[in-house]
């Protein structure tokens, strides 16, 4: 049995085996950002393939196939992020700056963070793993209410951070970061 079927999240060992997840060397050497498709199950679904304007994602005729990322073709445009109904696609720009990487995260919670806002970075288990700063926020009609929040984090967190938590909600004395109006 796969470990994630008991834990609910993909471990590092499971991630490296996925055809949609680039490895660290590819992330480092690729010019610009790369999609990271964390899709591990053969479910009937292929909007990522349809959404990609560069032909960088292949699912195939059998739509239960796992998506394969063709690294050379990926521009990291991020159009696949809101197309994934499973919210399982992220985009990673390993070479964002000297010591930081940029990570694009699909986010369907309100309120949305502001550009420049400091956040708490969460991993696949929802555990706090460090700080992050919002560098871009995309919430356009085409994305159909799936906002994409691009954050900068220290490079070593780029394959860990998969969610964000707003500090302002945490500090306003609201119960567990949830707003109650």
């Amino acid at each position: 049995m796969e470990k994630y079927k008991a834990t609910g999240f993909l471990s590092c060992e499971e991630l490296v085996r996925l055809p949609g997840v680039p490895n660290l060397t590819e992330l480092k050497e690729h010019k610009g950002p790369l999609a990271c498709i964390e899709c591990a199950e053969c479910i009937p679904c292929n909007p990522c393939e349809t959404a990609c304007p560069h032909g960088a994602i292949e699912v195939g005729n059998d739509i239960t196939g796992l998506p394969t990322l063709l690294v050379a073709k990926c521009t990291g445009c991020g159009l696949c992020i809101p197309a994934c109904p499973g919210l399982a696609i992220f985009v990673i720009d390993y070479n964002y700056s000297e010591c930081e990487a940029a990570v694009s995260i699909p986010y369907e919670f309100l309120p949305l963070p502001e550009i420049g806002e400091e956040l708490i970075a969460l991993n696949r288990e929802g555990k706090e793993i460090g700080g992050a700063v919002v560098i871009k926020k995309i919430n356009i009609k085409k994305y159909d209410k799936t906002a994409v929040i691009i954050i900068r984090v220290s490079k070593n967190l780029c394959m860990e951070v998969r969610n964000i938590k707003l500090i302002k909600l945490n500090n306003e004395g609201l119960e567990d970061g949830h707003s109650w109006k």
Binding site: K5, F9, I43, G86, L87, R124, G126, N163
Partner: peptide, 30 residues
């Protein structure tokens, strides 16, 4: 998403019955 605190999802079986992508979304909310 609506603002509730979900304490846990429990299942009698030793494995999660639903799809991994749904489980992943739930888990990364903590």
């Amino acid at each position: 998403q609506g603002g509730a605190r979900v304490e846990a999802v429990i299942d009698l079986l030793p494995v999660i019955s639903g799809w991994a992508v749904h489980a992943g979304k739930v888990r990364r909310q903590g």
